[in-house]
Design a protein around this nucleic acid. Structure first.
Lengths: 208, 208
DNA sequence: CTAGTTTCTAACTGCTCGTTCCGTTATTGT
DNA sequence: ACAATAACGGAACGAGCAGTTAGAAACTAG
């Protein structure tokens, strides 16, 4: 039934994702997409309808592949403090490393397009909810295991770590001084460990 | 000597800053600049040389005005924990407030342009250094006053708060759920207060 | 083989971009 | 008054943009 396609949709989305990740939506041109993906414009529009369509497919792919790869371990039932600390240490070690200037695609999208594009906004909202829930789940497990003091507010702490991760992604993207990146993660790890020490159980009045 | 200018350079930069702040560099067109600034293209290029020149002037103005307005209080000698907590609470209260989707211009630039533009990169590096030093200065004062336990590593904690602030700016920009924004700031404030309690003085082995 | 269907190639469409140029207008020193 | 000077308004530039189209090419069902 007709001439067969010379491309595979999945491979196209994977390549497009790299371009949007590195350059953002506006700075990624159809010319760049056509050259990188090795296909023609016609097929691109036949398959995705528009640059925006390919962009949205790229965001969904990023969530399924990259976010799942890094935050998936936190979503698994057995995950606790160890996995959170490991992830913080992992990102902290990447300061100015090759490829680190990609940052996090969905964090980049949150800044570049979420305020102006509904599709981007929805995916960023889902993303923030996902990593914050993943963190909360791991913290809850840690609390039940006694790795955290019983009076720790896991939802609040998860939100704090979510902001910390986003901050790390900005620092990675901007290729700033790796020392700050390292120290930022070290501070978060130190906070987690201090909340495990029984000493921390002396409750502070929570901020409203 | 010749016809006088009908514009004031300072007012032009202030207006341009708003546009770059809201839309970023790529999405801000010369047409938008000409209309918003109320001047003609010729004057724009005579005064700034290029869109990039006006952009760089806008970044410098942002650092001098907006960053100074919010982080200046932390840089003053008397500043301590109170000022840091106040700033966290201030940004946390702005979730989905009118204008909050502007986020922070230099955080936006860190994501959109710092990896690809040298001028942006330099200003972001200076910005991160500025807010991290401002925080460290206030933390040091707090430590000397006894608001923080003596064994607190102020440099590490300052880096952690820097990442937290950048994370808050991303969340503001993306107009996500205000509850996460609020909780993220609450977690940082709780951390600061717990480090003041003598209980926290039981040293944790620092993360390397 | 052939008719029908689908993809591919590559030129092309308006359109908008950042930037430049030119004739006009307003001001100043003499 | 009158050049000289400098900014004004607007048109125009080439380049590059997202998206389209027409015809050639490749496959399959019958």
């Amino acid at each position: 039934m007709g001439r067969p396609k010379t491309y595979q949709r999945d491979a196209m989305v994977a390549e497009a994702m790299q371009l949007f990740w590195l350059h953002g939506f506006e700075a990624t041109t159809t010319q760049m997409l056509v050259e990188r993906l090795g296909i023609n414009r016609f097929s691109l529009y036949a398959e995705f309808g528009s640059k925006q369509g390919l962009y949205e497919a790229s965001l969904d792919r990023y969530d399924q592949d990259v976010v799942a790869h890094h935050f998936g371990p936190l979503e698994r039932p057995g995950a606790g403090l160890c996995e959170i600390e490991g992830l913080l240490a992992f990102f902290a070690s990447k300061g100015r490393a090759p490829g680190s200037h990609y940052g996090c695609l969905l964090c980049n999208v949150a800044v570049e397009r979420a305020p102006h594009d509904l599709a981007s906004h929805a995916r960023v909202e889902r993303y923030v909810s996902r990593i914050s829930c993943a963190l909360q789940s791991a913290l809850q497990t840690a609390l039940e295991r006694g790795e955290l003091a019983a009076n720790v507010e896991v939802a609040t702490l998860a939100a704090g770590l979510t902001a910390t991760f986003l901050g790390l992604f900005v620092l990675l993207r901007a290729q700033t001084d790796p020392a700050i990146l390292h120290d930022a993660a070290a501070a978060a790890i130190a906070q987690l460990r201090s909340l495990g020490a029984t000493a921390a159980a002396e409750a502070q009045p929570p901020y409203p």
